[in-house]
Design a protein around this nucleic acid. Structure first.
Length: 567
RNA sequence: GCGCCCGUAGCUCAGUUGGAUAGAGCGUUGGCCUCCGAAGCCAAAGGCCGCAGGUUCGAUUCCUGCCGGGCGCACCA
């Protein structure tokens, strides 16, 4: 499809308005009516234009309809209700368009609505204090799909995982590992009060001790010297860095198994603090007269930034003990790094961070970035159930369901698809027992099954030795059934679904749409035979099936879900 | 108390930047495999779209208030 159908229709409307001597509308929104009698596409431009045209909506609609140019795509234009314009597509054009869909192949559905935009997309960014849990799986599914959607619209996307390898949680992690190492060396040690009790740190500690042991007696002695003699800074550094690198490596592996890879892994310590970016940004804010000192600390005047960006109170940038806050570091990072290589910054955060959003927006705006250039999507919690009973997920208590376990239990495709059947800001109950027990009834299989069925038809054709000419030579005109036409029209909507999902940052739209497409294909398959004696009809139907299969595959690709040939 | 998000079928959720007679899956009930894959198809039942106002030709969608639920309100990250 060189130009989406709605653009052609809009051109038609503009031409008609010009011919009728009526004013131009700013936009011409097209919707797909629920009922077939209302056509394939409908618009309310006439109603929005009525005031400026000083005519009744119906009169405007009539004028547009009578002056509407003849287009190959359009069979007729009708006026209905208070002033709707209902457009009926030409069946002949639709069937011919199927050929174009097949020709476009894996590029069908791509668009250019985000062309030239550089997007920096951060998601998951779990603390490096333990393995990934199920919320991260949701964030990963949403974030990865968003990246795919935006890329399908020619945005230049950089995906990023931010590692919080500094600050108090980092220190708690380092102390926890140190305690476990002491225990591994047979020394008395207790976990710090705010430490991480999980078993994985015990394993990590014993691996660390083993590594040193394997290097020889010297290394082991050096380790013992470290825990007994070395200063606090050095111990924190050694154990903290080791724990973070191992845990991040594990997180990276889990994500890769899940089909999610990041372009950039950023270290808070190395890429922000060590470069003294926080100090730089504090100076910049000070130069703009947006900071002040009080109670020994340095504050950001976030409450004084106007209604839109305003925070409800001022925020501390540098504590009275001289350390910069996490907030200051984050502001520095966004301003000095992210915005230097992007004009649009999108962060996926958990609901526990939503109070944090206003101050970040305020800071970004204060530093001169357009208010809509920095976006935060809150990914709601996943409440995990097993047979209806809540599964507690607390790292502190050491009882939680890992992302790896989720993948093992319900599978990558089912997990990703399930996460993408809800809006990101809607809480998601996920019953592990149900998901496994009824995995065959999961919506993802409904969609995948349609694809597998189509592939199976192709196999049948090959086994029966039937010769299928190249697509360009197949006459598509035998596709005359209502269901066939409806399916083709559905396929023609696909590029706009993708564009809409990318614009709204809502991958779930694609998931829903695919379910509906599969919901049209399955009954069609039941009611009409593809392989049959009428060779012309068979070839045309094979082409239709190929179109459905292609769009399902393209759509699932945007969700990061596989399209199996058989299942 | 203040702020953000959410109240749609028994359950879980969609509802296309305000559109025409509100949808799907699960669950329930009843049918369909000598015919390209039954992970499928067909049918039935199920709704004051939380409540009350307002804006509009038109509201599940926007505004206000109330009721009910979740979350956040650190010199933590």
């Amino acid at each position: 499809m060189r130009t989406p159908i709605t653009e052609r229709l809009t051109e038609g409307v503009r031409t008609a308005l010009a011919n009728a001597g009526l004013p131009e509308p700013e936009t011409c929104p097209w919707e797909i009516p629920r009922q077939a009698e209302h056509g394939d596409y409908a618009t309310n431009v006439a109603m929005t234009l009525a005031r400026a045209a000083r005519r009744s909506p119906r009169q405007v609609a009539e004028l547009i309809a009578t002056h509407f140019p003849s287009l190959r795509e359009v069979e007729r234009v009708a006026v209905a209700g208070p002033g709707f314009l209902n457009v009926f597509l030409s069946p002949a054009w639709c069937t011919a368009a199927l050929g174009e869909i097949l020709e476009a192949g894996d590029t069908y559905g791509r668009g250019a609505s985000e062309r030239g935009r550089r997007v920096r997309l951060e998601f998951v960014s779990a603390n490096p204090t333990g393995p990934l849990v199920i919320v991260s799986a949701r964030a990963a599914a949403v974030g990865d799909s968003l990246a795919r959607l935006l890329r399908a619209q020619e945005a230049q996307v950089t995906t990023e995982f931010y590692i919080n390898d500094a600050g108090s949680q980092f220190e708690a992690l380092a102390r926890s590992l140190e305690a476990r190492v002491r225990q591994g060396l047979g020394m008395p040690a207790e976990l710090p009060a705010n430490g991480y009790p999980g078993e994985y740190l015990v394993d990590l500690a014993s691996e660390y001790v083993e590594e040193q042991r394997a290097r020889g007696a010297d290394a082991l002695e050096a380790l013992e010297a470290l825990v007994t003699d070395a200063g606090e800074r050095e111990r924190l550094e050694r154990f903290g860095r080791y724990a973070v690198s191992r845990i991040v490596e594990q997180q990276r592996r889990s994500l890769r198994d899940y089909g999610v890879e990041f372009d950039v892994w950023t270290s808070e310590q190395r890429d922000v603090r060590d470069l003294h970016l926080p100090e730089k940004v504090l100076e910049e804010l000070a130069a703009r007269k947006l900071t002040y000192e009080a109670e020994g600390a340095l504050w950001f005047r976030s409450s004084a930034l106007g209604e839109e960006a305003g925070d409800d109170k001022d925020r501390v940038l540098r504590r009275s003990n001289g350390e910069v806050t996490y907030f200051a570091v984050d502001v520095a990072y966004h301003h000095c790094v992210k915005f230097r290589s992007a004009d649009r910054v999108i962060n996926l955060l958990g609901p526990d961070h939503h109070g944090y959003v206003p101050r970040m927006k305020a800071a970004m705006q204060a530093l001169g970035h357009p208010s809509d250039a920095f976006e935060v999507l809150i990914v709601q919690l996943v409440t995990l159930l097993r047979d209806g009973q809540p599964v507690r997920m607390s790292k502190r208590q050491g009882e939680f369901v890992l992302m790896e376990e989720l993948l093992e239990e319900v599978g990558r495709d089912a997990a990703r698809f399930t996460f993408l059947t809800r809006r990101h800001d809607s809480p998601l109950p996920f019953d592990l027992a149900v998901a496994t027990r009824q995995s065959a009834e999961n919506p993802v299989y409904y969609v995948q099954y349609a694809h597998a069925r189509i592939k199976s038809i192709d196999k049948q054709v090959a086994e029966q030795g039937l010769v299928v000419p190249p697509l360009g030579e197949i006459d598509l005109s035998p596709l005359r059934e209502d269901e066939e036409l409806a399916i083709i029209k559905r396929l023609l909507q696909y590029p706009e679904v993708v564009r809409g999902a990318a614009r709204a940052l809502e991958p779930h739209r694609v998931a829903y749409w695919l379910q509906e497409l599969a919901g049209m294909f399955h009954p069609y398959y039941k009611n009409h035979r593809v392989i049959q004696d009428d060779r012309q009809l068979m070839l045309a139907r094979l082409a239709l099936c190929a179109g459905v299969g292609r769009v399902i595959r393209n759509g699932l690709e945007l969700l990061g879900v596989s399209a199996p040939e058989s299942m």
